[in-house]
Amino acid sequence: MRHFEDFRVGDVHELGSRRITEAEIRSFARQYDPQPVHLGRSAQPLIASGWHVAAVFMRLYVDAVISGSAAEVSPGLGELHWLHPVRPGDLLSGRATVLSTTPSLTRADCGVVRQRGELADASGRPVMRLLFYGLMRKRDHDPVITPEVRPDTLRA
Rank of each mutant, 00 (worst) to 15 (best):
G134E: 10
A64P: 02
T101C: 14
A71Q: 09
P103I: 10
C110S: 15
E72C: 10
Q115E: 14
L92S: 00
A70H: 12
S104C: 05
R114K: 14
S74P: 02
T106H: 10
D63G: 03
S69Q: 11
R95V: 05
L135R: 13
H84T: 10
G78V: 06
G111K: 08
G78R: 11
A122C: 08
Q115P: 03
L105H: 12
F132L: 11
R107W: 10
R107T: 11
S123I: 01
A120Y: 03
G76C: 01
S93C: 07
V73M: 12
T101F: 07
H84E: 14
T101E: 05
L105F: 07
S93V: 06
L119N: 03
G94L: 02
L77E: 06
R114S: 15
E72V: 11
D90K: 01
L92M: 00
L77V: 09
L105M: 11
F132A: 12
S93W: 04
S93L: 02
A96S: 15
R116Y: 08
D121Q: 05
L60E: 04
D63R: 12
A64F: 02
T106A: 13
V73H: 10
Q115N: 06
Q115S: 13
L119E: 03
L131R: 13
T97E: 15
R129T: 12
V127K: 00
D109N: 13
T106Q: 12
V62I: 15
A120M: 10
L60D: 05
T101I: 12
V65G: 08
L80K: 07
D109H: 11
R137Q: 12
C110N: 10
L80F: 08
T106D: 07
L105A: 15
P103Y: 08
R116M: 11
P75V: 06
E79D: 14
V113I: 15
A71D: 07
D63Y: 03
A71Y: 13
T106C: 05
P85I: 04
V127W: 01
P126E: 04
P126Q: 04
A120V: 10
S67M: 10
D121P: 03
T97V: 15
M128E: 09
M128S: 04
P85S: 06
A70M: 14
S123L: 00
S100Q: 11
I66N: 02
R125S: 04
